[in-house]
Design a binder for these strands. Structure first.
Lengths: 357, 357
DNA sequence: ATGAAAGCGCTAACAG
DNA sequence: CTGTTAGCGCTTTCAT
């Protein structure tokens, strides 16, 4: 039953001649609208809107009536219309290179969870797809008018930066640092990682270094500073093997096999990811090389399996989830109307030595 | 230069009293609109719209003028408005349990790639998040009016099925089979997998079975039919260990450790995923058990690392990418206006024996 | 090939 | 607390 209906007692015509019969619209989509719910509940559309978005502004009784009408009609709000009218979409976009890399996934998961908890929906864009560069992807994403956006890395085209600023929404760049972020930033220094790993291995006594490196932008930064640091010790890398993305254990094995086939006998191999390191280690073991006695293997990111499968695998620990968590916190603060300006967070990293095998 | 503008020569007033000066709108959002581009190009808004969406209906010269105006203004289309007006959003939603499981990722990647290639954007929903059940998630997703939707699994609440049907969009359920799909379907029979694995191991001569199983719905189906099949051989499982999701190598190790600690000495362990199997195998090896001589380990899904790290790990091969590819093909056919009805695809599976260690 | 009018479903900004 | 009015930015329909 709708509320004890005090139905409008015959309201008088507003115009002499109705402009044109506005009965059934020509373009109706068939789905239930706010208006339908309002009619059934005996209230105006805006009241239904309020019941949905600002229940505190509506009488409990009205609320209940509306609730029933919604249930009865199976009404599903149209966020296209809502977003268009209010300029708030409750959408947050995030761009990551690929789903194939567990590193980014571990960041996205908490990001998604926190945003979902706050009533936002995450729209994921994958920039690693060969035919779509980040710029096009970004354009496509911005056309959905997200309330905020998260980017991986700090290298974006001028045009992209332009668009992002024009969009006037909070932006968080993550997984790297830069002195000139677009807006907010949460990451760590890949340059420092490269240097730290070189220092670590050198002081452990290793001297014959090799690299297995994927085609990732940040991996190359780590490699560069690693090589620079070696240069500082008067050393150079024995060999560098490039492997294609997405990185797999298989690629790691093949990389190590190639290294050995080429006659290299490194005593330390630095890989651009734990997955590659995993493969390198498997290949080494299958050839009877002891790790880390004969060859040390260094990974990156400290993924789950690393510690549990090959206790001999050392790696660079990165709190990937923290990146997502911090990013979400920054965005939610901004979206919550806080006056906060850009935030910059260096989450750091840590070298983990595992040689308990 | 805008084209030689034949500007309307003073059109006469349509009404005596203009209802209210419609100059600057009260609610302008500040961003460049179709109208702005149109003004700059000296054409009407609809022409800009056509230049963007149906370039073939527009003169090359007009097209060029419009293109320039778009570039000059930095116009980014508003797909909320476009979608609202046209009832087509170029959005396809997909619901998967979690990003933490490589199985689903491998399906989503080709799905995303194909859809992107066809001009659609993928909206990913994660149903495994504890506080959001699939039904609520689905409601949230439908409010963005996707043009089609992909679901994982075939168990959905009545209300969800209802909504899905009411939405009148193509639906693909994936990763499982059912005689009564909502619409289209692409998957394989988990029941058959369970039975096939039991048959396989039994005929290999194994008799002391154990299970390590995650809290996945489909994993439980496989377990049930596995146990049933064992029953048919007059056997029963030694022990079943349940591990929490998300499944990790660590969980696998702990599962195996628990099994052994409880005094079980299985000669074959069937795991609900390769990741778990990976951990089980690592734990077995670290205790000096030979695989598969002392204990056979059976995984599920045939993930990359399985073959390359532990050549002794047998598994059930599932063409996860094919699921995504087929799903995308089905959707694109439907969205392309083909008259096609529901499609059902059984992509099958294959038991892979790897014992070359 | 281009344009004018109307409206998609919703909410902001006032009234009352 | 509830309703009225006027758009949000785009595309459909129908003219020209």
């Amino acid at each position: 039953m709708a509320r004890s209906a005090s139905s409008p007692p015959g309201r008088k015509a507003l115009r002499e001649t109705p402009p044109s019969e506005p009965r059934t619209s020509t373009r109706s989509t068939g789905s239930v609208t706010l208006g339908d719910v309002a009619k059934l509940a005996g209230v105006s559309p805006i009241t239904v809107s309020r019941a949905l978005n600002h229940p505190e502004l509506v009488t409990p009784e009205t609320l209940e009536t509306v609730r029933q009408a919604i249930a009865e009609t199976g009404y599903v709000p149209n966020l296209l219309a809502g977003g268009l009218a209010s300029s708030r979409t409750k959408l947050v976009a995030a761009i990551i290179p690929t789903l194939g890399n567990a590193m980014f996934i571990d960041t996205i998961q908490p990001l998604n969870d926190l945003l979902t908890g706050a009533g936002y929906q995450l729209l994921l864009g994958l920039s690693g797809f060969p035919t779509t560069d980040e710029q096009e992807l970004l354009k496509g994403i911005l056309s959905r008018r997200p309330d905020a956006i998260v980017l991986t890395g700090v290298n974006h085209s001028d045009e992209s930066r332009q668009r992002l600023k024009a969009a006037k929404i909070p932006v968080v760049e993550m997984w790297d640092l830069t002195p000139a972020p677009i807006d907010s930033l949460v990451g760590f220094s890949h340059e420092k990682v490269g240097k730290a790993v070189a220092d670590f291995l050198f002081h452990k006594g290793y001297r014959r270094f090799a690299l297995v490196c994927a085609g990732d932008e940040r991996a190359r930064i780590r490699r560069r500073s690693f090589l620079e640091a070696l240069g500082g010790f008067g050393l150079e890398s024995l060999a560098t093997v490039d492997v294609p993305t997405p990185t797999t254990v298989r690629m790691g094995r093949e990389g190590m096999a190639r290294l050995l086939a080429d006659g290299h006998r490194p005593d330390a191999v630095f890989c651009s990811s734990d997955v590659l390191a995993h493969g390198v280690l498997a290949e080494a073991q299958s050839r009877g090389l002891r790790v880390p006695e004969d060859v040390a293997v260094m990974g990156f990111a400290d993924l789950d399996f690393a510690a549990y499968t090959f206790p001999a695998l050392s790696t660079v620990h990165v709190d990937r989830a923290a990146i997502g968590t911090r990013a979400a916190e920054i965005l939610l603060a901004r979206l919550g109307g806080k006056p906060a300006g850009p935030t910059m967070v260096d989450i750091g990293f840590e070298i983990i030595e595992r040689a308990s095998a």
